[in-house]
Amino acid sequence: MATIREVAKEAGVSLGTVSRYLNGHQLKETNMKNIQAAIEKLGYEENIIAKGLKNNKSLSIGVVINTLTDVFATSIVTYLESYLEENNYSLILCDYQNDLSKLEKKLEFLRSRSVDGVVIFHLEEKLAVLDKFRQEGTPIIAVDAPITNFQTATVLVDNYQASYNVVERLAELGHKKIGIIAGSQDRFIGRERLNGYVDAMKKLGLYEPSIIKIGDYKKESGYLNAKQLLAEEKITALYSTNYYMTLGAVQAIYERQLIIPEDVSVIGFDHFELSDILQPKLTVVEQPVQQIGETIGALLIQKIKHPEQVENSVMELQTSLLWRDSIKNLKKGLVN
Rank of each mutant, 00 (worst) to 15 (best):
A73H: 08
Q251E: 15
S265W: 06
T17C: 15
F188T: 02
V63G: 02
G43Q: 04
I189A: 10
I49K: 05
G196K: 03
V167A: 01
S19C: 05
D131P: 12
Y223N: 12
N336D: 12
T67E: 14
L282Q: 08
H25S: 15
T74N: 08
K213H: 09
D131T: 13
I4L: 15
A50P: 06
Y89W: 08
T74Q: 00
V284A: 07
Q302P: 01
F72T: 00
G62E: 06
N336F: 12
L258N: 03
T17L: 12
T236Y: 02
K126A: 06
R324A: 04
Y207E: 08
N149E: 15
L229V: 07
L206Q: 11
E192F: 04
E40K: 14
A128E: 15
T152R: 00
P288V: 06
N88R: 14
A11T: 13
K176Q: 14
I296V: 15
V119E: 00
P288D: 10
G12P: 09
S313Q: 14
V285I: 15
K51H: 01
K54A: 13
M315D: 01
D116A: 04
I141Q: 05
P280N: 04
E81Q: 14
T17F: 02
D325L: 10
I180Y: 03
R191D: 08
L317V: 04
K234Q: 15
E255F: 01
K219H: 03
G205V: 12
T3Y: 06
Q279M: 13
V77Y: 07
V18P: 11
A237C: 11
K106W: 00
V266C: 02
